[in-house]
């Protein structure tokens, strides 16, 4: 009896969680805590390293500046699972691939060890543009997240 009660409680909690999280991917943390919606960045460069890790993957790219120098950037994406579902995998995104990433820089503006940004979408050399972030984080509605449109 007691166990039955406990189990129904757990099930109820699970259902509640499902309803609260009806957005397809619930973010690990809010956008505004770490990133600045008023600092959009548009980065082009070859991928130097990818951390396929939870709770956020990080794509490192080398961006060439106009004066010839290079700045290292690391761009935060969704979970490996989110990226997989969007078509961004170890096979499709390899080291050396030149990509264009749109996103927003970190609030602290710190470039040590690398400049950091929250990635919104990534454009591949063949022109494919894929959303690389998480939905429902409070990031600016800039059209990069296909979920934004479907919810309106």
């Amino acid at each position: 009896m007691r166990i039955k009660l406990l189990l129904s409680g757990v099930v109820a909690a699970g259902l509640g969680g499902l309803m609260a999280g009806s957005a397809p991917s619930v973010a690990h943390h809010a956008f505004a805590a770490e990133f600045d919606g008023n600092r959009p960045v548009n980065l082009t460069g070859p991928v130097t390293r990818i951390e396929w890790i939870n709770p956020h993957a990080w794509i490192h790219i080398d961006v060439k500046n106009t004066d010839g120098t290079t700045t290292g950037w690391m761009v935060e994406g969704g979970t490996p699972n989110t990226l997989l579902r969007r078509g961004i995998t170890k096979d499709s995104l390899t080291i050396g691939t030149v990509i264009v990433v749109r996103g927003y820089q970190s609030k602290d503006g710190l470039c040590k060890p690398k400049c950091r940004a929250n990635g919104r979408d990534v454009t591949f050399p063949d022109g494919r543009k894929l959303f690389m972030g998480s939905s429902g984080t409070g990031a600016p509605k800039d059209g990069s997240d296909p979920e934004d449109a479907s919810k309106q």
Binding site: G9, A13, G17, T79, N81, L84
Partner: peptide
């Protein structure tokens, strides 16, 4: 493996949050 997993990390984190609500409740 856990750090780079597609499902396990998410399941573990979700279970952690749900069971802590049972405990703390």
């Amino acid at each position: 493996g856990l750090h780079e997993s597609f499902y396990m990390y998410n399941w573990i984190e979700t279970t952690h949050v749900l069971t802590l609500t049972v405990f703390l409740g």
